Computed example of a mutant assay.
Amino acid sequence: MQEYQFQLLALKWVVDILEQQGLDRHRLLAAADISPSLLRQTSGLISQLKVAKLMTAADRASQQPLASARCGLSMPLRKQGVLAIAVQSMPNLEAMIQMLKAFLNAQSSGTDLDLVKEGDLVRAEFSLRFADQLSCDSMHRAMLCNLFKTFQTLFGESWRATEVWLMHSFSHTKELSQLLNCPVKDNKAINAIVFEQRWAHVTGAQVYPAEALRKQSSETLQRLEDLDDLIYQILPPLIYDGNTSIEHVAELFGVHVRVLQKRLKAKGTSYSTLLEDARKTMAVDLLVDSQLSIADISLQLGFKEPAIFIRSFKKWFKQTPLQWRKSAQGY
C-alpha cells in the first residue's frame, strides 16, 4: 500500500494555527498519535493519515467543525516567491493547475488536482488518494480552503469563486459559506472550487508581470537561506514544461548563472544534482501513481529516449523502472 507523506515543517504550521484558535495542542497530538518531539524537527515527513486524524480531532474539539477550514485558509503558501517564479512562465490556467499540483504534492503527497471545463464555468477538482483508508472530511476541508486561498493570492481581489463543492455531508455549510464569502454545497460528486471560465485564459505573465517578478525573485533569492530547497520546489513544473536549463532558472530569479552556481555551491550542492534528485522523485511517483508507459514517463521527465531513462533509473535504484513498478505494486 502506498504511504502518503506530509512535511513536518507544514505540520508545525498546522499545529501552531490550531493552537491560535484556542485548541490544546497536546490533546490534538495525542488524539492523532503524533509525538510532540516531531515538531522540534526542521525537516522530515509524517504519514498523511496522522495529519488527517489531527484535523478530525481539531474539528471535534471546536464548537463548530470549522477549525480545519480556518487552518486551511491561514496556512502560508510555502515559498511564495517560488510560486510566483513557477506561475510566471505558465501559458494558461490549466498549466498553472498542473504546477500547483506539483507544489501541493511536494508538501503533502497523494494530492490530486484537475481542471474541468463545463459551459461558462471551470472546476478545480480536488481529492486525496488515501481518503478510502480513513474519514478525511476535515482534511478535505482544510486542503480545499488552502487551495481557495491560493487562488485568491494568485489572481488577486478580482477573483471570485461561484461555488465550493464538498463530497461529504456537512451540517455547517452556511457558516463555511460565510467564512469563504461564497456558496458552499455538500453531498457533491467531487470536492471542487467552481469559477468563471474567463480565468482559464489568464497567463502567468498577467498574474505576475515580469518587472514585479524579477524584483520579487531577486529579493527572495537574497533573503532565502534554503536556496537548494527553493529550486527543488520549482523543478517539477519546469521539467513538465521541458525548460530546465540553468540559464532559464537563473533568468527566473533575475540573477547571473554564476551567482546561482555560487550560492548552490555554498549550500554543498549543484544545479545538476538538484535536477537529478527531482527527476528521481518524479520517476518514482509516476511509476507508482500513474498508468503511463515507461516511454511516456521518460518523455515527461525530459529524457531524449527511453533507453537513457532506463540506464539512469538503474544507476539510481539498481533496478529497471519496470522491475521497480512491479515490486512497488506487489507483483
Rank of each mutant, 00 (worst) to 15 (best):
A58T: 00
L54W: 13
E125H: 09
F253A: 08
K53P: 01
V184Q: 02
T150V: 07
I308K: 14
L77N: 15
I239Q: 10
K280I: 14
F103I: 01
R60G: 04
T273M: 03
A67T: 05
I234V: 15
M99C: 14
Q323Y: 02
S138H: 06
D112K: 07
Q291F: 08
G254L: 14
Q64A: 02
Q64E: 00
E276N: 14
N92Y: 00
A102P: 11
V284Q: 05
A161D: 08
N181A: 05
L29I: 07
E276R: 10
T150C: 15
G254T: 08
F317T: 09
G72K: 10
D186Y: 01
S47R: 09
A266Y: 08
L322G: 03
A67S: 04
L221P: 05
M167H: 12
C71R: 10
C145M: 01
L66S: 01
A189P: 02
D228E: 15
A106F: 15
K315F: 09
Q98G: 13
Q152N: 04
L128S: 13
V82R: 03
P183A: 08
S109V: 14
Q63F: 10
G156V: 10
Y4A: 02
M143I: 03
M1E: 13
A200T: 01
V202M: 06
K12C: 03
L121E: 07
A95S: 04
A212R: 15
G268Y: 05
R129P: 15
S171R: 00
V116P: 07
S35A: 10
V82W: 09
Y232H: 12
P237R: 10
N187S: 12
Y271V: 00
D226I: 01
K262C: 04
F103V: 09
W199P: 06
V194E: 12
A32F: 10
R258F: 15
A69Y: 12
